[in-house]
């Protein structure tokens, strides 16, 4: 299963490197939304700092949606998904591979976005460890839920509009916990003992487990 996952992730990232959707579309999208938020809220530095965790995670989740859609649109081209099934890959392996590639792309976006909120919004980094670890588990959660629902939505004709409707409500707890963990990370030195981080770990692992178990039926039926 791990070998299948590595092959899927490697293939998806190679396609991403060739098509440069992340570089040419996702990063500019992040930059534009970040600046627009700044315009909308105003140039008061304290306001920008206060909202920066929430803005960060809303943009991160919207970017993740685009990455998830992209991940499944490459399987829809030429019905490549049927090819994966015909090769007899472990559904759990396909799921893990997709999660890994989406996770990696989201982390790249989040690093770029993080630099944006630090340098444009003036966000402080009091507990870097908490920010990094909570970002990792929040991204794991959204990548897991997104991969599961991405496969479900990809089987319908309304995949582009259905995916946000499925993913955003399901990941609302992750969004909340990630925002709270980041608020703690910029306002105090609570570190990785933060209770919101514990919640993110639980959500991330539960979503990953549910996805691994149910992905086969979602993919086939």
């Amino acid at each position: 299963m791990i070998r299948d996952a590595l092959e899927i992730a490697k293939k998806d990232l190679l396609i991403e490197a060739r098509s440069r959707v992340l570089l040419n579309q996702l990063l500019p999208f992040v930059a534009v939304v970040l600046i627009l938020f700044g315009f909308a809220v105003g140039t008061q530095n304290s306001t920008l700092v206060d909202i920066s965790p929430g803005v960060f995670w809303v943009i991160a989740f919207l970017s993740a949606l685009l990455a998830i859609q992209r991940s499944f649109s490459i399987e829809a081209e030429n019905q490549a998904k049927d090819g994966l099934l015909a090769y007899g890959l472990e559904p759990g392996g396909i799921f893990l591979g997709k999660v890994a590639s989406i996770f990696f792309e989201c982390i790249v976006v989040e690093v770029f976005l993080g630099l944006g909120v630090v340098f444009i919004y003036g966000m402080r980094l009091n507990s870097v460890a908490l920010l990094i670890v909570s970002a990792g588990f929040a991204t794991l959660g959204v990548a897991s839920v997104g991969t599961l629902f991405g496969a479900l939505a990809a089987a319908t004709k309304v995949r582009e509009t259905l995916l946000p409707l499925l993913v955003l409500p399901s990941t609302a707890p992750v969004l909340l916990a990630a925002t709270k963990a980041w608020e703690d990370g910029i306002t105090s030195r609570v570190g990785i003992g933060d209770p919101w981080l514990g919640l993110l770990v639980v959500f991330g692992l539960i979503y990953l487990a549910i996805g691994m178990v149910s992905f086969g039926s979602v993919l086939e039926d």
Binding site: K11, I15, R18, I74, N78, Q79, D82, Y87, G88
Partner: peptide
């Protein structure tokens, strides 16, 4: 079953960017 079956469908099942 798929271990024993090769399937050539209407669609190419290929990745355009590879």
């Amino acid at each position: 079953i798929r271990q024993y079956v090769g399937y050539l469908g209407h669609h190419a099942h290929l990745y355009d960017d590879l």
